[in-house]
Nucleic acid binder design. Structure first.
Length: 106
DNA sequence: GTAATGACCCGTC
DNA sequence: GGACGGGCCATTA
């Protein structure tokens, strides 16, 4: 199976109001430290995908979107805030409260 | 076919 | 405690 589907499956497991990091998704997806593949997957995600890609942020809890993609990152932040995720004054998410534990704590 | 890049993470200085 | 570099695997040129 393509890692792409693995990554999508993991991201779909992320509940609303929660966020996860690339490394976490990569770990759960079974690709270890290949967080870069996660970024690639999100970058290659179709427009009508059921994957909440906006819940995927970097390890610091900041929005990752092609280095803000020139200013279109506000969309992702808006989606997260709409789900109950609060952002810091520095556009950073409080991972202590919103970081999705994942399946590794089963 | 080879070479370079990538919305990143971890380890070390 | 903070900053820098290297590395993982897959995709694209």
């Amino acid at each position: 199976m393509n890692v792409f589907e693995h990554i999508c499956a993991v991201i779909r497991e992320v509940p609303e109001g929660k966020v996860t990091t690339y490394g976490r998704v990569a770990q759960i997806a079974g690709i270890g430290r290949n967080a870069r593949m996660v970024s690639w997957a999100l970058h290659s995600l179709p427009a009508g995908s059921d994957v909440p890609w906006h819940r995927v942020v970097n390890r610091l809890g900041r929005i990752s979107y092609s280095d803000s993609r020139g200013g279109h990152d506000h969309l992702q932040r808006d989606l997260l805030e709409n789900e109950g995720v609060v952002f810091d004054a520095d556009e950073t998410i409080d991972l202590k409260k919103f970081l999705w534990a994942g399946k590794e704590v089963e």
